[in-house]
């Protein structure tokens, strides 16, 4: 896939970083404000997708199976599952229980394990949406060949 015009490329170059940071902001404030892992992950993936769309995928040399994102996704969701299982090992020993100290309400580092879930779910969602996008892109490139 070829890239777009110079105007799009320059605008994207300016915006992509900001969008990425905004996604990160939504993820880490998930337990304080609306949003969280899923919403933030989609925004993070959006910044990558914007870059690929603007600059084209030719320079990425996509192979038939793109595995980096798949492995990130699986690793992230596995860690989230391990945190949930950690509830069975520590504290009250219940699946999905909040086994870290809660802290004070309203601070950034508080609410026990919920920020951790948000971070890893955010990683998972970003990686999986990127995986879907890359898979569709690879399919399309195979079609046009």
């Amino acid at each position: 896939m070829k890239g777009m015009t110079l105007i799009v490329k320059e605008t994207t170059r300016l915006l992509a970083g900001l969008i990425f940071l905004y996604g990160i902001y939504i993820i880490i404030h998930g337990h304080l404000t609306p949003g969280g892992g899923f919403a933030g992950g989609v925004v993070v993936a959006g910044s990558f997708i914007l870059l690929i769309l603007a600059y084209g995928s030719d320079y990425m040399h996509l192979t038939r199976e793109e595995t980096g994102t798949t492995i990130t996704e699986n690793l992230a969701i596995l860690i989230a599952l391990l945190i949930a299982l950690g509830g069975m090992a520590f504290g009250v020993k219940i699946f999905f229980s909040n086994w870290l100290p809660r802290g004070t309400v309203g601070e950034l580092v508080s609410a026990g394990v919920i920020p951790l879930y948000n971070i890893f779910i955010g990683m998972e969602v970003a990686a999986s949406i990127l995986t879907i996008f890359l898979a569709l892109l690879i399919f399309k490139e195979e079609l046009t060949k």
Partner: peptide
């Protein structure tokens, strides 16, 4: 349900591209 709908739609689009091929 939105997350689930996303997964279903992605699956369907992938299948459609394969079908088209």
């Amino acid at each position: 349900a939105i997350v689930i709908g996303l997964a279903t739609t992605a699956m369907l689009m992938a299948v459609i591209i394969r079908v088209y091929r």
